[in-house]
Design a protein around this nucleic acid. Structure first.
Length: 216
DNA sequence: ATGCACTTTCCTGTTT
DNA sequence: TAAACAGGAAAGTGCA
């Protein structure tokens, strides 16, 4: 439900207050507009409130039960964000097992909710790297602190990029040309002699451990 | 309606 | 030899 509501707005889901992720359906239904604003902020709060009112009008008393079927989204967001801040920040190496109990059924849900706001290639790459749920072994950090990363499935990443841009003929060949243009703009730094390896430059933001999307 | 940023496409040549 | 890397050139796209 939240995913649907965020779609079509420019709201950045990364700024959600995830402390409230444990809300259940009935609690959510009891929230006033002010409650919503308190939890979701002045932008998304009223939007969700309106949507909830519509939903209530449509479905009457069954709404609370209805919500229970959607509310797992909150729970899983909580899992995701608590995970982001634990294993990787200390070891520098993400632990795929850490997420395993939650990953399988939720890949699509979380990927949708966390759909990147930016539409640029480097942001797309960055978001695959920082959200394990999106990764599927496509890319990996080579040096997390330095922002060095490597394409593990270059053609698959290109396909996904193409999918996002509604261009089924995207290839790594073409994607990499766009990557090379980033060198001039200091969004990427050259890493030479290492195939499929790139490094974020000083004009790339949002990838460092200390600037990961955080819980407010 | 036009300019601009950001690719996308294609290409020729080089390197690994 | 295949796959990547290098960039020039030009076309395409979405947005302000």
């Amino acid at each position: 439900w939240i995913s649907d509501n965020i779609e079509g707005t420019n709201f950045d889901a990364r700024s959600l207050n995830l402390a409230y992720c444990a809300l259940d359906g009935p609690s959510l239904c009891k929230m006033s507009q002010n409650d919503m604003i308190g939890v979701f902020g002045p932008q998304l709060g009223p939007h969700l409130h309106q949507s909830l009112l519509k939903h209530k009008a449509k479905h009457g008393k069954s709404v609370a039960l209805d919500f229970i079927s959607h509310i797992y989204v909150f729970f899983l967001l909580g899992c995701l964000f608590s995970g982001l801040r634990t294993p990787e920040s200390t070891s520098g190496e993400s632990d795929p097992e850490f997420f395993s109990p939650f990953r399988r059924p939720t890949d699509l849900v979380i990927a949708d909710i966390l759909a990147p706001r930016g539409t640029h290639l480097w942001e797309f790459i960055r978001d695959i790297l920082i959200y394990p749920e999106k990764n599927h072994g496509l890319l990996k950090w080579e040096d997390r602190r330095e922002g060095v990363f490597k394409f593990l499935k270059s053609e698959a990443v290109a396909q996904m990029w193409g999918q996002k841009k509604k261009n089924s003929s995207m290839t790594y060949e073409k994607l990499s040309r766009a990557m090379r243009y980033y060198y001039k703009r200091d969004i990427l730094e050259r890493v030479d002699g290492r195939r499929l390896v790139y490094k974020f430059g000083k004009n790339a933001s949002g990838w460092k451990l200390n600037e990961l999307p955080s819980v407010m």
